[in-house]
């Protein structure tokens, strides 16, 4: 990471700490904000958060690794999470999964080379009555079939 980038990131985190507070209870909000903007929380960012909140870097790392929606590895601009829980599974999640994998040329857990899309499975999205469902970043799509799913993904370039 370039020094300039590091400085910018530090400043950004400083602002977040200013906004949400230095108390430990603000930690998740700060991490969510970094995750939202950068799509991951780099090791440098984790250490900066730790430094500014006066906690240990490994504690930040521990939190990031605990929550499924926080990452310490770079992800695509769009994180696509396909629900794998039973109702969606029964309503055709497998076919949707296969179609999007074929279309993007990556498997679940991977990111496209152009860093556009990351494919992931997720647990119940609370859309069991309208499965299969998926999240594209925070947006939810339901009643998918292979065709609609692929169309959605091609539109988010």
């Amino acid at each position: 990471m370039l020094v300039l980038e590091k400085n910018a990131l530090s400043e950004e985190i400083e602002n977040l700490v200013g906004e949400f507070g230095k108390d430990r209870s603000a930690l998740l909000q700060i991490l969510q904000a970094i995750q939202g903007k950068h799509k991951y929380i780099s090791d440098f960012a984790q250490q900066e958060v730790a430094r500014m909140m006066d906690i240990h870097p490994v504690e930040v790392n521990s939190i990031v690794s605990f929550y499924a929606f926080l990452y310490s590895e770079p992800k695509g601009r769009y994180i696509v999470r396909l629900c794998q829980t039973i109702s969606c599974d029964m309503s055709g999640k497998e076919e949707v999964a296969e179609a999007v994998q074929r279309e993007l040329g990556i498997s679940f857990g991977q990111t496209t080379k152009d860093k556009r899309i990351t494919l992931e499975f997720t647990n119940c999205l609370g859309m069991c009555d309208q499965g299969p469902a998926m999240l594209v970043n925070e947006k939810v799509y339901t009643k998918l079939d292979p065709e609609t799913a692929v169309n959605i993904l091609s539109e988010i370039k």
Binding site: I55, V58, N61
Partner: peptide, 20 residues
């Protein structure tokens, strides 16, 4: 209060780890 070790990941993947 050295803070080198903490539980990382969760569920069956949980283990005591260092930073990254």
């Amino acid at each position: 209060e050295v803070g080198v070790l903490e539980a990382v990941k969760r569920g069956h993947e949980t283990h005591v780890g260092t930073f990254l």
